[in-house]
């Protein structure tokens, strides 16, 4: 019999962490009710899953944990609509579902041996966290790693303890920034992500790839910076979002031209996106 791709794996919420000062972003750590499901849920950084709450519905959310972290999966969720608002009210120990992993992933085979520049903004940092953890766990497989990550204020940065730990390492170049702050103890950058990208991103070459994930406004102003710095469009990797329902290329909600963001994406190179309608 065919597996039912609409059937979520039952999971339990093990831990809930409030990530941001506005309390609108929480990280949920799940474990599978049936431990065998964890193996079936084998994923790669960049993929997403449908979080499923019986009676409320499903939402597509990027996987924030890394496959190198065992025994749990993590998702950081912004409170926006019906499902996410309900999720924010749920408690540790509650049972719900996860359906996935879904979509493609950052091109890890292609990135092997290459320099990677991660550029993220706001709460789109989740699959980038997954990627950073994954790269650090396989550090010898990659060249230089740069991370440019910005949020509105210090309190709006995700994963602050991990950011601090990465700052202390010498095998990853962190460029954390905030739009503005009055905090005298803030010791990192101040400025929008495109500005910091212009200042800190390494020069483009054949062996350097940029991975961008952030709000449309950040992408809009970062892309010309990368262009100016000579990044080829097939060396710029982006992760898209669109409204989704099925997550498996059936319901057609998220189509961009002949492609589905859920199945053919969410990861596309800028070169691919240039050949597609701008319906995202």
């Amino acid at each position: 019999m065919q597996p039912n791709p609409y059937l979520p794996y039952p999971v339990r919420i093990d831990e809930i962490t409030i990530e941001t000062e506005d309390k609108n972003l929480k990280t949920f750590k799940f474990s599978f009710l049936d431990p065998a499901d964890e193996e079936k849920f084998a994923y790669r950084p960049g993929q997403f899953a449908e979080l499923s709450i019986a009676g409320k519905g499903e939402i597509p959310i990027g996987i924030a944990s890394s496959p190198t972290e065992k025994g749990f999966v993590k998702f950081t969720v912004n409170k926006v609509g019906l499902v996410t608002s309900h999720l924010h009210k749920m408690k540790e120990g509650d049972v719900m579902g996860i359906r996935g992993p879904l979509g493609n992933w950052y091109p890890w085979d292609l990135l092997a041996g290459k320099n990677v520049v991660i550029i993220g903004g706001g709460f789109a940092f989740t699959t980038l966290r997954s990627s950073i953890i994954y790269m650090l766990a396989n550090r010898e497989r990659f060249g230089d790693i740069h991370v440019i990550y910005g949020a509105r204020t210090p309190g709006m940065l995700l994963y602050r303890q991990e950011l601090a730990a990465w700052e202390a390492r010498d095998d990853i170049h962190m460029h954390i920034t905030v739009d503005a702050t009055q905090d005298p103890s803030w010791k990192y950058n101040v400025g929008f992500v495109p500005t910091i990208t212009d200042q800190k991103a390494p020069a483009a070459d054949e062996n350097t790839y940029a991975i961008i994930c952030g709000p449309p406004i950040m992408i809009k102003f970062t892309q010309p910076v990368l262009d100016a710095r000579g990044y080829a469009h097939d060396h710029i990797v982006m992760s898209l979002e669109n409204r989704m329902k099925c997550g498996i290329g059936m319901c057609s909600h998220c189509n961009v031209g002949q492609y589905f963001v859920c199945k053919d994406g969410p990861v596309f190179t800028l070169a691919q996106l240039n050949a597609m309608p701008k319906e995202y």
Binding site: G55, K56, G57, C246, S252, H253, E279
Partner: peptide, 29 residues
């Protein structure tokens, strides 16, 4: 073939169902 997925609950029992949807509607995207 486009469809939407919705949950409907009555009391403590519910169903997850899919309904035809249409790309003509602004909510679709």
């Amino acid at each position: 073939w486009c469809f939407d997925i919705q949950d409907e609950t009555r009391g403590n029992q519910g169903i997850r169902l899919r309904n035809w949807d249409s790309c003509m509607f602004p909510l679709f995207t």
